[in-house]
């Protein structure tokens, strides 16, 4: 396996302390950490967890949007949506590859997802009910993802940072595409505009939850900040997203489902009403509306694909054996 050659956990405590200090000094100097460099086990574990959750989110995220590929309302939209969902699969692929550089295999990470032991972004546990949801996902969900991911382009772990640069370029294209769907709907028939408003009503609050729990309750923030895996707090990113998005929604002529949303003239920021953190906790704990369906779809694809993967492996082994035999004969 590719990652076996990479260094494993060290046991010598004194050596570790020196290495840890050198490691932190490199991070402080904005050096990139590369797969073969020494790193604390907790750093490795944190990154494997975060990168694999991100990869799983891309893969599970193909499902809610994939739900509309066959019903896209024009050939141009069908092609764009198919290409977008394909991009997400591609993001999943780079991210699994980035996690592999840390010593985790794609197979074991996927197994964790299918067993329900790994998390993915809870936003994908909400249903896509109308075509406008495809616009809202591009505009809001990808918009929120970009806010989260732009700082990751400067993450201290090199392979993750480099994967994020490409992912962010594609995500910002998706976001513009989503907004353009919303714009077309909002300039369309009254039914289309109502469809757009309904989508905003359903997606707004879950999108605000995408930034994670409030800073007062976030478990991973401090160490992640020290290691420069994370550079902004959940609340800070959430505020940036709201400030960027609210004027866009008003330009569409839509109303945000938050009666307390108002612009603070002194700070220039938009303040919002309370987020339903109980709903967030329930969804994160696996109680999302579509959670069972999403996992069932992934399991079904995996199980039904097993004979195909076995066939490919068996054929490759037979070919390799034939090749070896012919070399020996020659």
């Amino acid at each position: 396996m590719y990652s076996q050659g990479l260094n494993q956990a060290e046991t010598d405590d004194t050596a570790d302390a020196t290495r840890a200090a050198r490691f932190q000094a490199r991070i402080d100097a904005e050096d990139k950490i590369e797969p073969n460099d020494w790193m604390p086990e907790a750093y490795r574990r944190t990154l494997i967890r975060q990168i694999s959750q991100h990869a799983h989110s891309e893969i599970v995220g193909m499902l809610p949007e994939g739900n509309w590929i066959t019903r896209a309302p024009s050939l141009r939209r069908k092609a764009a949506l198919l290409a977008k969902v394909q991009d997400e699969g591609g993001h999943g692929l780079y991210l699994y590859a980035a996690a592999e550089t840390l010593g985790a295999t794609r197979e074991e990470l996927v197994d964790q997802l299918l067993a329900g032991r790994a998390k993915y972004s809870s936003i994908f546990n909400y249903p896509t009910l109308t075509w406008a949801d495809i616009g809202a996902i591009g505009w809001l969900v990808d918009g929120a993802a970009i806010m989260n991911q732009i700082p990751l382009c400067r993450c201290s772990f090199g392979p993750y940072a480099r994967a994020m640069i490409r992912v962010c370029k594609e995500e910002s294209f998706h976001q513009r595409q989503g907004y353009e769907i919303m714009l077309t709907l909002c300039r369309g028939t009254p039914e289309q505009k109502a469809m757009a408003q309904d989508a905003l009503d359903r997606w707004w609050w879950p999108c605000l939850m995408m930034f994670g729990p409030p800073d007062t309750e976030s478990q991973h923030s401090d160490t992640s900040m020290k290691w420069k895996i994370k550079r902004f707090t959940n609340d800070g990113l959430r505020q940036k997203f709201i400030d960027a998005t609210v004027p866009q929604g008003h330009f569409l002529g839509l109303t945000f489902p938050d009666p307390e949303l108002r612009r603070d003239e002194a700070t220039g920021h938009w303040s919002h009403g309370p987020i339903d953190w109980e709903e967030f906790k329930r969804v994160v704990a696996g109680g999302g509306f579509c959670a069972a369906d999403r996992l069932a779809a992934r399991r079904k694809a995996h199980e039904e694909g097993e004979w195909v993967r076995e066939a490919a492996a068996a054929h490759a082994a037979k070919r390799a054996a034939k090749l070896a035999a012919s070399k020996e004969a020659a």
């Binding site: 193909m62 994939g66 779809a297 694909g305 195909v308």
Partner: peptide, 14 residues
């Protein structure tokens, strides 16, 4: 396109 998200491997999905 009906396969998207449901293929036997991620590579085949793409």
């Amino acid at each position: 396109s009906e396969w998207t998200g449901h293929a036997p491997t991620l590579e085949e999905d793409l």
